[in-house]
């Protein structure tokens, strides 16, 4: 554990809390992509099955349980409790275009051809692109509420901070995991355009609005 890793995890935690609070306080999930949330739930389920096969630390276990539980709570709020507020007509990204390549890639490019390892690899690749339906939704409607922007910023920062963590680990422990690093870089790059808009608009008090 180093400061980048901890900051990354806290950023991830913050993103989820922002999202849940936004939905709960406004009693609405308008502007949030249910498809991205389903992909995140699938990501954490596939990755954290190792909760039952190996113990890392109490911190690790608590965070994993939190990520799995909150991802399903988000889905419950979006698809059941506040279903009437879900913008499904703007949430039209075809997730099979992500799931199919990610599945094939996980079967081909992995550290070890075992059940758990392929699920882990699948989750790493899937997480990298899981935000695309959300970004697609923002570009389709041309705008995002400030709170949604803060959520996306925290979520994007998390993998960026992990990249610094990997650089740190490479120099201090000679540890590196190419699959996680490459997927993490791809994941972060997908947010670049959003980061730019966040700094130039949202932080100056303007709404995130794309040029028509």
């Amino acid at each position: 554990m180093n400061v980048f890793r901890l900051a990354g995890d806290m950023s991830h935690l913050l993103a989820i809390i922002i999202l849940l609070l936004k939905i709960w306080k406004t009693r609405s999930c308008a502007g949030i992509s249910g498809r991205s949330q389903l992909l995140f739930a699938l990501t954490y389920t596939a990755r954290y099955l190792d909760l039952v096969t190996n113990w890392v630390s109490l911190y690790n276990t608590v965070m994993k349980v939190f990520f799995i539980a909150t991802s399903y709570a988000t889905i419950y709020l979006m698809y059941l409790k506040f279903k009437a507020t879900y913008d499904s007509n703007h949430d039209t990204f075809r997730v099979e275009f992500l799931l199919l390549p990610v599945t094939i890639l996980a079967l081909v490019l992995n550290h070890e051809f075992s059940f758990m390892e392929i699920l882990w690899t699948f989750s790493i690749y899937l997480e990298a692109v899981a935000i695309l339906p959300q970004l697609f939704m923002v570009s389709k409607t041309g705008e995002a509420e400030s709170i949604t922007s803060h959520y996306l910023f925290a979520l994007g920062s998390y993998r960026l901070l992990y990249i610094f963590n990997w650089i740190w680990r490479y120099y201090t422990e000679e540890y590196y995991d190419l699959i996680a690093i490459i997927a993490g870089v791809v994941q972060t790059v997908l947010y670049c355009d959003f980061f730019y808009l966040y700094f130039t608009k949202v932080l100056k008090g303007k709404k995130l609005q794309l040029p028509a």
């Binding site: 995890d9 190792d50 190996n54 890392v56 690790n60 075992s114 758990m116 996680a180």
Partner: peptide, 10 residues
């Protein structure tokens, strides 16, 4: 063996 890799990150 189900898993020989231990992933210590989240």
């Amino acid at each position: 063996i189900l898993q020989s890799f231990t992933h210590d990150e989240l």
